[in-house]
């Protein structure tokens, strides 16, 4: 297949940035999207040009490093798929593909398609610690967790922190990400001791960092490669309200 690429290039956070056109020849439909870009980059380097920078690490959909907006969709056209797990068979020969970095004030562009997502880590950091007993590891069955709760916690914990939710949201809201973290702990007994404190400080941090306000468009849920559901946001809203009313 042959692809026409329109790729955003930007030298650094202060540069204005522009789209540049590239061609990718001999693209196999079995290639992943990142492999296709690798080939483009190799050609660029051969011609003495600078490679297009993009984030990636595991390339198996578990680290959350890859991040780009492909034809207007964060992580490309397929649902429940990270960019690294997207394959060229999702496109047709001769397609023009527009590739842009995640855009949000809280995610400044570092270079080309790479953005700084430290903000998400700061939100996690604001969550603080959980209290656990020291001493020997407890017996595996000493804390009883109903299967349903364990499942819900696990589903929330699947969030890989990629930031696609922020990128896809027209308000750059980080609610889906933050709620995944909140919900993960809220469903487990270990998360109860600091439950209220955690939601208050994580939401406060999220607001502080310049992520926008949620307007329930649901774009985040659709873009999320890990199918984190809006249900988590509802839980966070509930927990936050309870905590702010009770807190002294």
């Amino acid at each position: 297949m042959k692809m026409n690429l329109k790729i955003w290039r930007q030298k650094n956070a202060n540069d204005k940035g522009h789209f540049f056109n590239y061609q990718a020849e001999n693209v196999s439909e079995d290639m992943s999207f990142l492999e296709m870009l690798d080939v483009v980059n190799q050609d660029l380097v051969k011609q003495g040009e600078e490679a297009i920078e993009f984030d990636h690490d595991c390339r198996e959909g578990i680290c959350g490093a890859c991040s780009m907006v492909i034809n207007g969709n964060a992580h490309g056209p397929e649902r429940s798929t990270t960019t690294c797990q997207l394959h060229m068979r999702s496109f047709k020969d001769g397609d023009t593909i527009t590739i842009e970095p995640f855009r949000a004030k809280a995610f400044p562009v570092i270079k080309d398609l790479k953005v700084d997502r430290t903000g998400l880590e700061k939100v996690i950091e604001a969550g603080g610690y959980i209290s656990v007993n020291t001493g020997n590891a407890p017996d595996a069955h000493s804390i009883i967790i109903p299967k349903e709760d364990a499942d819900l916690a696990f589903v929330a914990a699947a969030c890989i922190g990629c930031g696609a939710c922020v990128a896809a949201c027209q308000n750059s809201s980080a609610m889906l990400f933050t709620s995944a973290k909140i919900s993960h702990m809220a469903h487990l007994p270990q998360g109860q001791a600091e439950r209220q404190r955690r939601v208050l400080s994580m939401v406060q941090k999220m607001d502080e960092l310049g992520f926008g306000n949620c307007t329930n468009t649901g774009a985040c849920e659709m873009a999320c490669p890990k199918d984190i559901s809006l249900e988590n946001i509802a839980l966070m809203n509930r927990d936050f309200m309870k905590a702010s009313l009770k807190h002294r």
């Binding site: 329109k6 034809n71 004030k105 809201s173």
Partner: peptide, 14 residues
């Protein structure tokens, strides 16, 4: 919070 818009709008399933 969203200073720059995307060149293309989200489509289909998203």
């Amino acid at each position: 919070a969203k200073p720059a818009k995307y060149a293309k709008k989200a489509v289909n399933a998203k």
